[in-house]
């Protein structure tokens, strides 16, 4: 399976996810939130992860930083390989609370979340929470240096008057400001990878544009990689170099942004494209994907999309075996029987 994913020079790779399976053991049954996902992220590039809510994109992101609450959540299989200074660390083998893991969090990998309103602790100033990150990852830094650095960061993310605003409490910030501060906090140790989990979903459209612009600008400056998780196709198409499409815990399609947009292969991806209006193209009828997402509790055998697929092939798609991953064109992978020659 891994040969499918080697398309970049390994030196450029910063994160490889191989056959990741994160399950939630509940009283009522096991939820296969992430069920065999493969992803690669290269230095300085942006990977867009796209899918409906509940498809496992957030769980994948949380798995990378080992933030899955356990119990009930557990990584049951797979590898998450972090390439750092020539060495390769398998994050799934670390304990969530161990020092190496804490070192990766915030230092190698920064993360910003969907809810800027609740992402800061309410009782400490913004500055305190940013400085804290600097101080835990840099033993040499003292408080004043950390403060100066935090003010710099706030200025970089476009917060006016950072010298004063650093002492403000989260509730004194607006949603957009808080997300900027959140980005500043995620960037304060110059991570090589920034995971942005729906960073603009709860923001106004105008502010969304500003935040995305800010992220692009910061990426150009720092050369960090971004894993951008979103259900918004427009956002992803604008930002991402590569796109992974997820459905019900599976990665159904993976390729460069151009390949995925110009030549969507998987029926689900095609369905997604048909369900959004295009501004400059000819007027087309919007086609929703029929049916509803099946419960992740009782996944159908075979292809998970089979029940909603317009190209459903009885006896093939619902055969109880894993769907093969096919490299339909160079560096463009799809998990669908339509493209298997045989």
């Amino acid at each position: 399976m891994s040969k499918n994913n080697v398309r970049h020079n390994t030196e450029d790779l910063i994160l490889e996810i191989k056959n990741l399976k994160t399950h939630f053991m509940l009283d009522t049954g096991t939820i296969h939130a992430v069920d065999g996902v493969n992803l690669t992220i290269s230095r300085g590039k942006t990977l867009g992860v796209i899918g409906e809510s509940g498809c496992g994109k957030s769980v994948t992101a949380h798995s990378i930083l080992r933030l899955i609450p356990s119990p009930p959540g557990k990584i049951v299989d797979g590898e998450i390989l972090l390439h750092r200074d020539g060495e390769v660390i398998d994050i799934t083998k670390l304990k969530p609370t161990e020092e190496m893991m804490r070192n990766i969090r915030g230092n190698d990998i920064g993360m910003i979340f969907q809810e800027p309103m609740t992402s800061f602790g309410p009782l400490h100033t913004i500055g305190d929470q940013i400085m804290e990150t600097i101080l835990i990852h840099n033993d040499a830094a003292n408080k004043n240096e950390a403060r100066d650095q935090a003010i710099d960061l706030l200025r970089q993310v476009g917060i006016p008057n950072p010298e004063q605003r650093i002492d403000a409490y989260p509730h004194e910030f607006s949603g957009g400001m808080r997300q900027r501060a959140m980005i500043a906090m995620a960037l304060c140790c110059s991570p090589t990878l920034l995971i942005a989990d729906e960073p603009t979903t709860s923001l106004d459209v105008t502010i969304e544009a500003q935040i995305l612009e800010l992220l692009t600008g910061l990426q150009a400056q720092t050369g960090m990689a971004i894993m951008l998780i979103s259900h918004n196709l427009a956002v992803v198409s604008e930002m991402a170099d590569d796109i992974a499409v997820m459905y019900l815990g599976k990665r159904v399609e993976f390729g460069s942004t151009d390949a995925i947009f110009d030549n969507p292969l998987h029926p689900y991806t095609q369905g997604l494209w048909q369900s959004i209006p295009s501004v400059d193209g000819p007027l087309e009828k919007l086609v929703p994907i029929p049916g509803i997402v099946p419960s992740p509790r009782d996944l159908p055998p075979g292809c998970v999309f089979a029940s909603r697929c317009s190209e459903f092939m009885p006896g093939i798609c619902d055969a109880p075996k894993p769907v093969p991953i096919i490299e339909a064109e160079p560096d463009h992978f799809v998990a669908c029987y339509l493209y298997s020659n045989g």
Binding site: G106, G121, L123
Partner: peptide, 22 residues
């Protein structure tokens, strides 16, 4: 279980310290 606790965890704070502080 609130978001800000996850944020603090994602920053790399030691578990005990983050629970007490936040």
């Amino acid at each position: 279980n609130k978001q800000y606790v996850t944020t603090a965890r994602a920053k790399g704070l030691p578990e005990w310290r983050l629970i007490m502080k936040y």
